[in-house]
Amino acid sequence: MRYLEEKIVKILMISSIFAVLGSLLFILFITISRGWVSIKENPGIIFSTPGPRYLLGGEGGFFHAIAGSLYMVVPSTIISLILACLIALFLQSEYSSKRVSEIIRLFMDILWGTPSIIYGLFVLTILISFHQRGCLLAGIVALIFLELPIITRYVDESISSTPKELKEIAYSMGLTRVEVSKIVLKYSTSGIIAGVLIGLGRALGDAASIIFTTGAASTMPKGLFSSGTALPVVIFQQASSFYPSVRDHAYAAAFILIIIILVLSITSRLLQKKFSKYTVGD
């Protein structure tokens, strides 16, 4: 009887593995194959900006979206990394009491769970009250809100897992709290990198907050206060188009997005290996 159960469960497990991998590979395969075909036919679409009737089947590409994505994601990641390191250090026992850090962690968890569309609306209300139209800066702010809880959580976790002895030794040599914090940060670099890349990936793939803050312009972004757009937003628009050629472009855009994310996660793994030399022990 027990062995029968064991067998049944094993079959179920293997079939669910196939379900998980199959569905995910299906997504990857469709995007990569269709995207590759569409790019190979017309490689210009990556490097050209859209023409006036682009979404109606006109000519042009989506370079403005790639540029917009990068312009928004990179600064917001850097800013939220700095903020996240400061907040995570503050959560340590040297700076705040246990109760305070518990409350802050709870707020962080709530912010993590908040859907990105609410961040988008939040920044939108600020824009409306200043009588501004959507701009890159607003998108950057919305993405900071999105990334900050994620990165803070990872930094916090990897800082908390530094061995107590490391800190004790550092303090016994007469270092101040900031100096110890620097050592701790260095020790947990590989954990921080993992967090940064996960936050970056989320920001790169997020459309809901961008569509409300930066908008869906079809021009190259010119400065912090010019409107722009991001790759996911363009994919969303292209996918709901009636013209099959435009929908093919959606696959091409998704292909680019997935390639960027794959490259990011591979670099993160390599960097983690490189920085684990600062880790004492294991």
Partner: peptide
């Protein structure tokens, strides 16, 4: 497998929507 699935966790939701909508 587990590092492959970790990578897959980073696929943006728009891509899922796109593949489901068109595929």
């Amino acid at each position: 497998l587990s590092s492959f699935i970790d990578v897959l966790a980073g696929i943006p939701s728009v891509v899922f929507g796109l593949c489901m909508l068109l595929g």
